[in-house]
Nucleic acid binder design. Structure first.
Lengths: 126, 126
DNA sequence: CCGCATCCGTCTTGATACTG
DNA sequence: CAGTATCAAGACGGATGCGG
């Protein structure tokens, strides 16, 4: 199979135009992807997210959640209990993004051996 | 449809384990995604990539290409002509990643209006 | 306790100038 | 043309403090 045999559904316009770039930059930033994965099975509280996403700082979790909320991809529910509780959850739109995101995760999982081998070979040849 | 109705192919292990994280961090960094899109139709030269990917610096293009090459996702062909010429191209493995990546791009394209509306509404409510 | 804002040191990134 | 070197600007993580 050659490259030209592969056909992808072409986006309506040039995929590199401004708005699409903004959205992709949001999805593909350092932490958003992992927040999506962490929320895929339902609502999760702030500190539970913090524990689930290894290495994320409180600060970056807050910032990234705010951005995703602004984009309408996740919703924030605040319970004024003591101690306070805040649930984060994927919205309808957010869930529709889950399929492509999980496709990426699944790809990474099934190809990790191939990539690790490529790295070893590259580092050796160097 | 509720969230629990959605079933995804579960990766063989916990998706948050080390190697998968490393791979996802590479794919979902600021520039890799755009390099993939730019290479989807065949080999492209260094400066052509630079022009295609709006806003990328020469430095970051070099660094990102090197990383993707190390991971075996793209190949680098150097022609010792004057002026020199270097072609970058997706490898077999790299092409297999194209499907999930383009799914993400297509999603971003079809949902940009929804997201922009969500942002407007959020900024207004604030 | 939980969620969030702020300050500060570190590391990454970008702009610019230079080389084969 | 395709990089490399250098340095300044910005993003990020960790610690701390605060309000519920």
């Amino acid at each position: 199979m050659t490259l030209s045999d592969i056909e992808f559904p072409t986006p309506s316009e040039d995929a590199d135009c401004r708005p699409v770039r903004e959205i992709l930059d949001r999805i593909a930033d350092k932490w958003s992807l992992y927040i999506f994965v962490a929320l895929k099975d339902g609502p999760v509280r702030f500190n539970a997210l913090r524990r689930q996403i290894d290495g994320i700082s409180q600060r970056m979790l807050t910032i990234t959640l705010r951005q995703l909320e602004r984009d309408g991809l996740i919703s924030r529910t605040h319970f004024p209990t003591i101690p306070p509780r805040v649930d984060y959850e994927l919205t309808e739109v957010g869930r529709s993004l889950l399929a492509p995101v999980m496709a990426l995760v699944t790809w990474a999982d099934s190809n990790r051996n191939v990539i690790e081998e490529a790295r070893r070979q590259h580092d050796q040849t160097r």
